[in-house]
Design a binder for these strands. Structure first.
Length: 886
RNA sequence: GGGUCUGUAGCUCAGUUGGUUAGAGCGCACGAUUCACAUUCGUGAGGUCAGAGGUUCAACUCCUCUCAGGCCCACCA
């Protein structure tokens, strides 16, 4: 044991430990040595997307590893299931960009099959990188159950889900206005668009008797309806009227409709509507039966509806139309200083074009989901499961945000015009191509089924074409908790591990993902997907900024792990934050925990090299000294506190508590005391079972947070009951329960007070370190610990002090000073006395106040009284000291 | 516009059912250091807990308002 390195070197340890863990099979609940009836505990890893390698955001998975390791040590049948998400739009974009950069080819040049082949190769590559990264972080994932959202089994489940939902009328095809990205050539969900402030000319046109304003003249060519507010008196006379007017492409006729959608305060109070390219206008058009026609096509150019202007880009058309209107004298005003929010694609930043197209939707309002025996809509179930407490969201303030979002939920557009992803299981008959077939009207009906149909069920044609679109990524990830466990088969895993216990993820995907999982899972399984949703914050830099490439403030988790060790990184991520709050991470913080890990290493090293045989001590040894009883009491209190905090998901605080105990109590005091006392207690000198007992408990308590170093040290002990720390029994209060006299604890505390006071005097009065001072007076509660005080305070106990004395505390005095200027001390003492007297007056007043004594609980009154007593005692000391100093 | 979070020592943050003369780490200053650890040890200086009211015997903690920042949602012709 003497060859242990002075400094902990994580590099040499982590890989070995990782390999040993994996070889053990303990990450897999099937090969975990636990009783058959052990309680199950499961978490499904929020699947990282395969677009890139892991960043610090993913390192937050460490919270899940802590939960999992904790549960495993509590003897539960523990499963943490890994997987990755194909992230259709992001991945396809990425690969398309790579192909374009390298070969100047578009996806259409490659064709569907070739593009998919390229994507698959890219994905295989990034999957293996991600896997290695996850392993490097020490995550105890069961890799034997790894899933990918495009696995054949998952695909079948997704298609079955689609068909089931379609059968139940929850999925329908409809023409609706959608966000269209002309660059990605796909629809975007409401939450896949972003807004960017943009300065743009704001045009005012003369439209018959009205003045209308717009930033998008190119869409206005077909407008034939004016909306005014019903209560706007200026326009009452026009309600329901039609009128002719000169417009972009010749004269047209327009009509006026009164509707509250128009805001009289805004502009002229009159607006024309463009049904196909504005969400508000689309709703109005449906309400009043106005013809809905796309002016702009999916390629971002004007359609045939624009007549001779068809084919112009929106920019060209804008310029052209303004010119035309100007010539006709219809431009009233152009406001150049107008800013508005431009809608852009969250992936590529291209301006989104709202347009109308046929898409597949999930109906969130149709009451066809049976939940607890009642038919409800997806929306209602999603609200109910949280209201009823079937799902708990931590921190609970997010429940409010959740409700608000669900309540405003519209039907969910699930079709995407992408090639990468789950193909929509729908076929259309194109059957009139074979001889003799008579394609009836019904053939236009889509055939919805999981397998490729052999022939059209209406006309018998064998010429069927599958819907070219794929499903929104969130459709498949919404099913993640149960498809990964084998659904729709009634597997043992599904029975054992579903619902999962916790979903731990960032609050930024509460809507994207969490809400969708709740919708999909309750419908498919009749169960909630998870009992608890734990939301963590985002990882930011020291200034609280998001980490991004452009800011250059990105911290790579693997760099940090290589530089400071994975345990240090894990600790830095888990502390200084509470659930739902963002965590600021910076290198100094990680370095701080590297120092701690090294401290831990040296504590272990000290204990291991002190004892004759470093063995595992299971039961609490006899406690021989006051210090023994004190440290065990502290260990007990720490264990209890940590357990309590972990039950409440307060991991940051639990770490802090452990940290205090380990460094401040154990290392700074107890080990130092042990150096003094152990050699005296001869029988235990070489054994130090208590040190080993404490070490054993610490290893367990720290293991979920710092798994590598703890496992490494555990492996150095002889006679440990389990072959690995990761399956050791979690310490509970009984482990450290003691029946010792509290006097022991108080004695040590008093000793610490005295030593601290002496140290302070030494430092404050600049007494040379080599000077040995004399201590005299009654030891009070610290009686019997004189030897420790002498050792730590570097003092000599004397009965009769020589020369000048200085009152210290608790009636003790210091003497033996040489060449000390007491003026500083005098001034300080006076100041302290003054403060103290104010404090005492306050306390006395409080205690004399009848309202206080009659209202406050007894223990508080007792506490205040004790404070007063202590303060009064202290005043006596200080007065005494002043007398001596003058 | 609607919602929500944050504002505590120079910096980053704790402080969970209201009861300490308000805490930690880092940084800073001073002092130590062959004996587990300089990735160390000891000591110290720093805060009217954003501001103003209110409830209470008692408020960093609860309520109202104001100020300053962040985020989410909705987006207007």
């Amino acid at each position: 044991m003497n060859d242990l390195p002075k400094a902990y070197d994580p590099k040499n340890v982590e890989d070995d430990i990782s390999r040993a863990w994996e070889a053990s099979g303990y990450f897999n609940p099937d090969t975990l040595p636990i009783p058959k009836n052990a309680e199950a505990f499961s978490i499904v890893l929020p699947p990282p997307t395969v677009t890139s390698t892991l960043h610090l955001g993913h390192a937050m998975y460490v919270i899940e590893d802590v939960m999992i390791r904790h549960a495993r040590m509590q003897g539960k049948r523990t499963l943490w299931l890994p997987g990755m998400d194909h992230a259709a739009i992001a991945t396809q974009n990425k690969v398309e960009r790579i192909v374009w950069d390298k070969e100047k080819k578009t996806r259409h040049d490659l064709g569907r099959e070739e593009l998919i082949r390229r994507i698959d190769a890219f994905v295989a590559d990034s999957r293996s990188t991600i896997t290695n990264q996850l392993k490097k972080m020490g995550f105890s994932l069961d890799w034997s159950r790894e899933r990918f959202t495009l696995d054949p089994a998952i695909s079948r489940a997704v298609q079955k889900m689609f068909v089931d939902m379609h059968t139940d009328g929850l999925i329908y095809r409809g023409s609706r206005i959608v966000n269209w990205c002309p660059r990605c050539q796909s629809t975007l969900a409401d939450d896949e668009v972003e807004y960017k402030e943009e300065r743009t000319p704001f045009y005012y046109f003369k439209y018959g008797p009205f003045s209308i304003a717009t930033v998008r003249p190119e869409t206005k060519i077909g407008d034939k309806v004016v909306i005014v507010h019903p209560k706007d008196k200026r326009y009452t006379k026009y309600h329901g009227k039609t009128f002719p007017l000169p417009w972009i492409d010749g004269d047209i006729e327009a009509r006026v409709i009164a509707d509250e959608a128009s805001d009289p305060e805004l502009g002229s109070g009159a607006m024309t509507i463009t049904p196909a390219h504005s969400f508000v206008d689309f709703e109005l058009a449906k309400k009043y039966g106005i013809e809905i026609e796309n002016i702009i096509g999916q390629d971002g150019r004007l359609t045939n509806a624009a007549g001779k202007y068809a084919g112009l880009t929106t920019q060209e058309a804008r310029k052209k139309f303004v010119e035309i209107l100007q010539k006709k004298g219809l431009v009233e005003k152009i406001d150049e200083n107008y800013t508005h929010n431009l809608t852009v694609c969250y992936r590529c930043g291209t301006a989104v074009e709202p347009l109308v197209s046929p898409q597949w939707f999930v109906d969130v309002n149709k009451p066809v989901v049976t939940w607890k025996g009642v038919k409800k809509s997806l929306k209602d179930v999603a609200i109910e499961v949280v209201k009823s407490g079937d799902i708990e969201i931590i921190p609970d303030r997010f429940e409010k945000t959740y409700f608000q979002w669900i309540e405003n939920l519209h039907d969910w557009c699930i079709s995407r015009q992408l090639w990468y992803g789950h193909r929509i299981p729908v076929w259309y008959c194109v059957g009139d191509e074979h001889e003799g077939a008579v394609c009836k009207l019904e053939c236009r009906q889509p055939v919805v089924q999981t397998d490729h149909p052999i022939e059209c069920r209406y006309c018998g044609s064998k010429n069927l074409r599958q819907d070219p679109d794929t499903l929104d990524t969130w459709f498949s990830s919404g099913m993640w908790t149960f498809t990964t466990l084998g659904w729709p088969e009634k597997t043992r895993d599904l029975k054992t591990f579903h619902p999962t216990n916790v979903l731990e993820t960032g609050y930024d995907i509460l809507f994207f993902w969490v809400a969708r999982m709740i919708l999909m899972t309750t419908y498919a399984t009749g169960e909630v997907p998870f009992r608890t949703v734990y939301l963590h914050g985002l990882v930011r830099d020291k200034e609280g900024r998001k980490m991004s490439k452009s800011l250059g403030n990105i911290i790579d988790p693997l760099d940090m792990s290589a530089k400071y060790g994975t345990d240090a990184l894990r600790l830095a991520l888990m502390t200084g934050t509470t659930p739902g709050n963002d965590v600021n991470l910076y290198e100094e913080k990680i370095a701080g925990y590297r120092n701690f890990v090294n401290k831990f290493w040296n504590i272990a090293r000290f204990i291991l090299t002190t004892v004759e045989t470093p063995r595992y001590v299971d039961t609490m040894p006899t406690l021989a000294t006051d210090a023994d009883r004190w440290i065990i009491s502290r260990l007990h209190e720490t264990t209890r506190g940590v357990n309590k905090l972990m039950d409440k998901y307060q991991y940051g605080l639990a770490i802090e508590k452990l940290y205090r105990f380990t460094w401040n109590d154990l290392a700074d005091w107890y080990l130092e005391i042990a150096k003094v006392e152990r050699p005296v207690i001869a029988s235990e000198a070489k054994q130090s079972p208590l040190l080993l007992f404490i070490l054993q408990n610490l290893l367990k308590l720290w293991h979920p947070y710092a798994p590598f170093i703890t496992e490494h040290v555990y492996q150095m002990l002889n006679g440990h009951p389990k072959n690995m720390l990761m399956i050791e029994t979690w310490p509970n209060e009984k482990t450290t329960q003691t029946t010792f006299a509290h006097e022991s604890e108080r004695a040590i505390l008093a000793m610490q007070d005295i030593v601290n006071a002496i140290r302070e005097k030494r430092s404050w009065l600049a007494i040379p370190y080599t000077t040995t001072l004399e201590l005299s007076g009654k030891m009070g509660k610290a009686k019997g610990l004189e030897h420790l005080i002498e050792h730590f305070g570097k003092v000599k106990m004397v009965k009769k002090p020589q020369g000048k004395t200085l009152a210290l505390t608790n009636g003790l005095s210091l003497s033996g000073f040489t060449g000390v200027n007491f003026e500083k001390e005098h001034a300080k003492t006076k100041k302290e006395l003054k403060n103290l007297e104010g404090y005492i007056t306050g306390l006395a007043k409080k205690l004399a106040n009848e309202k206080f004594t009659s209202n406050a609980p007894k223990n508080i009154i007792e506490q205040e009284r004790a404070k007063l007593e202590a303060a009064t005692e202290r005043v006596k000391d200080l007065k005494n000291k002043l007398k001596q100093l003058t």
